[in-house]
């Protein structure tokens, strides 16, 4: 149970960063942390203690195995997160070129 709680704490750390940080790069990192927490969550659901990797090997057919599906899901989700992070970093670079700052409180031409 303690691992789930720690995982949730990691998620909250990410959320806290997104909500309170003023630096664009720190916000991007916080979104990344939230994503890691979600992935870890998926992996934890698949894990069983004293179990074996889910590949058929001779002499080990009778062991209990971890669930392979969440691992496949996490791979997909990591690729998607890589794409998100790359896009966010590209946008942050463009924003720096236009506004000459990474401070989110100074990047506010849109309001109202």
């Amino acid at each position: 149970m303690i691992v789930y709680i720690l995982c949730f704490v990691l998620f909250l750390v990410g959320l806290y960063g997104v909500l309170t940080k003023r630096d664009l790069v720190k916000i991007i990192l916080s979104v990344g942390i939230m994503g890691y927490a979600a992935n870890l969550f998926l992996i934890l659901f698949a894990y069983k203690s004293d179990s074996f990797y889910p590949i058929l090997t001779e002499g080990k057919e009778n062991l209990s195995r971890v669930d392979p599906l969440p691992q496949a899901l996490v791979l997909t989700s990591i690729v998607i997160e890589l794409g998100t992070t790359a896009l966010l970093v590209a946008l942050a670079i463009k924003l720096y070129q236009k506004y000459k700052t990474f401070d989110i409180t100074k990047i506010r031409r849109l309001s109202g």
Partner: peptide, 26 residues
């Protein structure tokens, strides 16, 4: 400049909501 600003805002909000959906799926 405004378009990048709007897009960044949208991207952050979109990613946060996607992570929530992923936890829901998990």
């Amino acid at each position: 400049a405004e378009e990048f600003e709007a897009s960044f805002k949208y991207a952050i909000m979109g990613s946060v909501s996607s992570v929530l959906i992923l936890v829901g799926i998990a």
